[in-house]
Design a protein around this nucleic acid. Sequence first.
DNA 1: GACATTGCTATTTTT
DNA 2: TAGCAATGTC
Length: 859
Amino acid sequence: MMNRFDDMPFFGDEPEPAPQRAVSGGSIAARAMAQRDAARAAPDYLDGLNPEQREAVETTEGPVLVLAGAGTGKTRVLTTRIAHILATGRAYPSQILAVTFTNKAAREMKERIGMLVGGAVEGMPWLGTFHSIGVKMLRRNAELVGLKSDFTILDTDDVIRLIKQILQAESVDDKRWPAKQFAAMIDGWKNKGLDPAQIPEGDARAFANGKGRELYIAYQNRLLTLNACDFGDLLLHPIRMFKKHPDVLKEYHERFRYILVDEYQDTNTAQYMWLRLLAQRSSPRSFSPREGGMPGRAEGGAPRRNASDLPPSVASGDISPSRGEINKVNICCVGDDDQSIYGWRGAEVDNILRFEKDFPGAKVIKLERNYRSTGHILGAAGHLIAHNEGRLGKTLFTERFDPEHDKVQVHAAWDSEEEARAVGEEIEQLQRAKHKLNDMAILVRASFQMREFEDRFVTLGLNYRVVGGPRFYERLEIRDAMAYFRLVCQPADDLAFERIINTPKRGLGDTSVRALHDYARARDIPMLAAAADMIETEELKAAARKSLFNVVTDFRRWQSLLENTPHTELAEQILDESGYTAMWQNDKSAEAPGRLENLKELVRSMEQFESLRSFLEHVALVMDAEKNEDMDAVNIMTLHSAKGLEFETVFLPGWEEGLFPHQRSLDEGGRSGLEEERRLAYVGLTRAKRRAHIWFVSNRRIHGLWQSTIPSRFLEELPLEHVEVSESQNSNYGGYGRNPYGQSRFDKQEPFQNTYSTPGWKRAQANRTDATRDNWGSRSGHQVERIGYGESGPRAKTIPGELVAKSTVDVPSQFSVGDRVFHLKFGNGNVSAVEGNKLTVDFDRAGQKRVLDGFVERA
DNA sequence: GACATTGCTATTTTT
DNA sequence: TAGCAATGTC
């Protein structure tokens, strides 16, 4: 057997099994902590924990589910728990498996554990993301799944290029069946833990005239030939390995005494399977993922009420916790079902809803004491989320309720421009009151919303930062440079080869590359090797051969330098000698200097790694952007990327039907889609510590067309007692034709009205009933049921799926060129062109605009 | 190989 | 509308 753990440093350096509460052996830090523990009744790391948190920390044995609401000290519990396990000598650092989703979370956890236990955290090799731990396991035993231990990790971009090649090879029309789409399908299957043989027949047929399965197989084969993995494989290969080689799994079972999982509500089926295998101490029966559709995410859109209605899951069917031995597993999952917002990416809320069934005898601890937000914010968020049915049910509370705190403010604006302007004013107002911009965030549903705010802030000269977006390692020049490095380290990396063989231009165009490709495929050798061969043959033109000869000798030279040259030096050398640096130096375009700067930064960032190889590994998994937190700036980001963050003041624009909840979620996800949107709203609100401002507009431009919009149903789900509706005084919301550029409402000291009866609100309501009168029900065929709730608050109205008029071209317009029309926003004008139901109108005052005919009437 | 033209699509995003 | 990607033209 190749899985010899004894040559793994972290397996060999400590006695095994760990003695319970032993004070001898183990790391010095752990020993010191244990001694201190013995000396004192309650170690000081437990200070300041509330009773529930303390229980979550101290219940170390058996399965534990910590339901940690927003702002209830989740990370603190997780890190203190680990510190506690170490300090009491229950396990050595290397016997704890602690998994997170993001590198950021892993880093943060490591840091905070370090603060509690000092250097012992360095001995925790199994603290990391699902993927990085997966890689670690795979590198150890790669040959068991047909890989070599130096396999490459492909990112999304590589994967798409690879699939393109496969589609071409199989002569699939990649216009009709885009590679991107197939990459998404494969990703989806892998999220569910499905091998080609296990994908649902329907899925297999749905792509490329039924070739789905075949192509998936071809893709997997290609990956093996390339000695490469995609992200999904980093989990699936270990799962396969565990299933095929119980002895390997057993070693891990003996190794991990404690398993901790962060953000459990975000785990997908594959991650769940992986965890179950590792958590399963009794000898597992043969195990295969369930065939057919995915569990959980409602196929028919039927709402899932509670865990007991759930269909037999992947795991409970196949690796059931037999004979109660599962109880021995000390697994602790921390999560919040109300913050599950990644269902669309394969996350299974059911995993958390089902925990107690999966782990009989599990202890469930709820953390509901919130340390972040004011009572009003919690009240509003709690009332909103209570409209969801598929939840475990928590109610956050705070002990510092202060009637002086602001209620959640709901604002109406005429259009997105005014929305941005008003938010800008509010921010400046806060700024004048000495609030820091860093403490404010604008959280949008979709990134196109950001632009309006950016424009406005540029005009105002207000600092802002966009969080998320394109990352450093995704930039063109970085990916090119990385391809060079990859190819030097791994001559078989054909994807890297193809990426850079003609970058910079070397006269090796499509024809040469195709010839190389064919030659390589025919002989089953890497393209770089093929290139070396083809220098000798007559197949290519002399110029191309010469060029190829140079490239091949370059790579040979660089490879020979790999072991003995400092890697930063080698990297610079590669970039210079390949002509890549020169290429950008000669480039006259505006972005060229920036790209050169990025390349320098890339080399600089390599310094902290010991070799080119370890750097490559880091980049493949830890794609992190640099951030400038020293600047005081307003944060702009999507609601998704705001999860886990907190701000004094949060602005939540765009609460309109169709945008939020997003139409597509409604159409594609039905009821569960709506609930996920609602959780997103909940996440948004609970990011706020003191102030939350929600906005909705009555007109928004979508794809260049102005559309009338309706306030989000979520607004109606907010409780009156915690919400204040304040219409900006200068808003000409509903008041046609008034100058929107009036004085700021902050200049007037009129008190905001705090009921739902302001004229604007009423108009919004009227607007809503009009627009929703017909077309009941969404495309997916179900209606959204009435969501009733007792006590106070407005009655929830039922809002159907199709609220925003669709811009369907096939509906002929009732208008024709020359008609005189009236539009709410733009006034009177003449129709100058008609295209389906889209009109081009020359407005008397507003100029030429394109509008949907539903929004104009005959003048 | 550089540049213009056409066509298409249009959430959320980590690893 | 706008931004991108994949063609077409010289």
